[in-house]
């Protein structure tokens, strides 16, 4: 699994993947969307619609990944974390340290993605600067509960299912590629259950410059994300503590 990490660290991964996605989906496919769907997107080009969704999603995916294999690695395979708690560090310090480290990585990933978006002229508003921390918060709302889950696992067997039935469907149905208004009407309220949708909605409002239209809604979205991230962090501290103390 090491390859995913080195891969992520490489320049291609950081700048190339966002650029490729924006070109193919935003410009290539977007050309077809713009010709036929002006009414749905209300005058926004598909590239501009898609960019905030990809920003939030890619930070979310990085957060999910960082909370699985690397954490399990530290707990199970190389036992680095066990070595840490043999020092004056406490288990909760280990947990919080990991969350902070992930937050740092997410900030890096999000910032690079934002730079690429700006280079594509895909953001309408300078408020994209604020979209990066929102994306990071979205990533943490995934990373912390997943970390809590990881600390209860001994093998990576269940991660595949987590990605397949968790992050991948959320990535596909949280308003990243198309507005949730296009979903069947009975499904639309379900989007409220998706942390990613809250993140995408705020990032999109910030980058399209429409945040002022519904400021209360934005605050609610952010509040929900913060709540999930906090509860996840509390659970993560607890499960990691349990794991390191009991062995």
């Amino acid at each position: 699994m090491q390859y995913r990490r080195t891969f992520r660290a490489s320049l291609f991964g950081s700048f190339g993947i966002p650029a490729l996605f924006l070109t193919a989906m935003g410009l290539g496919l977007g050309g077809y969307v713009d010709r036929s769907a002006d009414a749905v997107l209300q005058g926004v080009s598909y590239l501009q619609f898609l960019a905030p969704g990809l920003l939030a999603s890619s930070v979310m995916q990085t957060g999910s990944f960082e909370a699985t294999f690397p954490i399990l690695g530290g707990l199970q395979w190389n036992k680095i974390f066990h070595a840490m708690v043999a020092t004056p560090l406490r288990a909760r310090d280990v947990a919080i340290g990991n969350i902070l480290w992930i937050a740092l990585r997410l900030t890096l990933v999000g910032s690079i993605f934002a730079l690429v978006i700006v280079a594509f002229g895909a953001s309408r508003s300078p408020l994209i600067v604020l979209a990066v921390p929102v994306a990071v918060l979205t990533g943490l709302a995934f990373a912390t509960p997943i970390m809590a889950f990881t600390a209860t696992q001994r093998t990576p067997d269940r991660f595949a299912a987590l990605f397949r039935f968790g992050t991948t469907p959320l990535f596909l149905f949280s308003g990243t590629f198309f507005p949730i208004e296009s979903l069947p009407s009975f499904l639309q309220p379900v989007a409220w259950l998706s942390p990613l949708w809250h993140g995408v909605a705020v990032c999109r409002a910030l980058m399209l410059g429409t945040i002022g239209n519904e400021p209360v809604l934005a605050v609610i979205h952010i509040g929900i994300l913060a709540a999930i991230a906090t509860v996840g962090a509390v659970l993560a501290v607890r499960t990691i503590d349990g794991r390191l103390v009991k062995g």
């Binding site: 077809y32 969307v33 036929s36 769907a37 991948t168 596909l172 149905f173 296009s182 979903l183």
Partner: peptide, 19 residues
């Protein structure tokens, strides 16, 4: 399920925008 989810999302969800 993965290709199935993609079909639902890209094929039908996004498909409505593309026509």
């Amino acid at each position: 399920f993965e290709p199935f989810f993609y079909l639902l999302s890209i094929g039908f969800g996004l498909g409505r925008l593309v026509g």
